[in-house]
Design a protein around this nucleic acid. Structure first.
Lengths: 185, 185
DNA sequence: AACACTGAATAGATCGGTCTACATATTTTT
DNA sequence: AAAAATATGTAGACCGATCTATTCAGTGTT
């Protein structure tokens, strides 16, 4: 794959990620992706012969990996788990508000839409979440119940993000942040 | 509205709720709703002149009210808040598994799909979540931080439900249930 | 007769996907 | 090094299917 081709492919993935994060799998049309990316229709099916499913699948996986990496890297001055989660919530709130409540979790909407009826995409979402759980578990490895705690923290963050988007408000994220210390004290 | 009409209207709402809970707003076509409900096309726009938005809006509101009522009613032998939430998680797990991972939260998918770009539906979702928060707050009224705690519990449950659906497994619900006592101890 | 409701036909837009012609690189052959 | 052959990528017309919505004559009920 030449350089030009790789750039087009990336632009398609970028546009898909943005649109899907906002409106989900069914809410995003390939015409929108084409318009937003500037790539022609032919290029889409050249780079993603598997069509929409492949395009969205790779896009979700890529977004998931980026976040997984961020969760994994040993944060600067190694804050406590509670401080780390509070920081994550704050960051997510900024991102959400700045994007006019469009950018929440790049996986959640697709996960809910495809959980029951689209096996390949369900699997992608499941794997992404698993990788996040693993990264969080590593951060909580000092606890005896790190496994349960990692899933609980992820659920808490995802739920807070959902409520924040539903209310179009940072409030749920802030409320949850105030309670995190009870869980991770 | 005659009796027949009211039944048709209800059948339409039932079918919509079921389909939307499985595949979301964009993932559910009115043709599916018509087929599943057995109602004719003309009846849909007779009972819901506002079209799809009105139909889905009323359906989400109705489902939300039912759950809100369940959250509000003083449970039998008044268990502790922690026991109550554990019961909710268990119940949700049953419902989810029995429905082949189709029935999670009837609001979440629509909330995420419409958060940014569909004002009327965003508002419906926000109000439903608010009513649940209120019901939970009443259950936690003994706590000084009942407000924050109610939102946190709701986020935790919604997040657990999302992860359970994504993984097609009860596991996240069970893990979260095991941690609830830390939060509500 | 008045009203509530149905059923089918239809409209126009958009859906995901296929196809062919063309342009641009990269290799291979001479 | 020039020319020919091949691979890579672009461009958009086009397809059938499906989408939401509208219309309206007809049916059933009161």
């Amino acid at each position: 794959m030449g350089q030009k081709g790789a750039e087009t492919r990336d632009r398609l993935l970028d546009a898909t990620q943005e649109l899907v994060e906002t409106a989900g799998y069914f809410g995003t049309g390939l015409n929108q992706v084409i318009a937003a990316s500037g790539a022609p229709r032919g290029s889409l099916y050249f780079h993603f012969p598997g069509g929409k499913d492949q395009l969205v699948g790779e896009s979700v996986r890529r977004a998931g990996q980026a976040i997984g990496d961020a969760l994994g890297e040993p944060a600067g001055t190694d804050p406590s788990p509670a401080e780390f989660v509070e920081g994550v919530l704050r960051h997510l709130g900024d991102r959400l508000a700045e994007s006019d409540w469009r950018k929440g979790c790049p996986v959640a909407t697709v996960a809910l839409e495809t959980a029951a009826a689209n096996d390949p995409l369900q699997e992608v979402c499941s794997e992404v979440y698993s990788s996040w759980e693993t990264a969080l578990r590593a951060r909580l490895s000092s606890r005896p119940d790190a496994d349960d705690l990692a899933v609980t923290v992820l659920a808490l963050v995802e739920g807070a993000l959902l409520l924040a988007r539903a209310h179009r408000s940072r409030d749920p994220l802030e409320r949850v942040a105030r309670q995190v210390h009870t869980l991770l004290g």
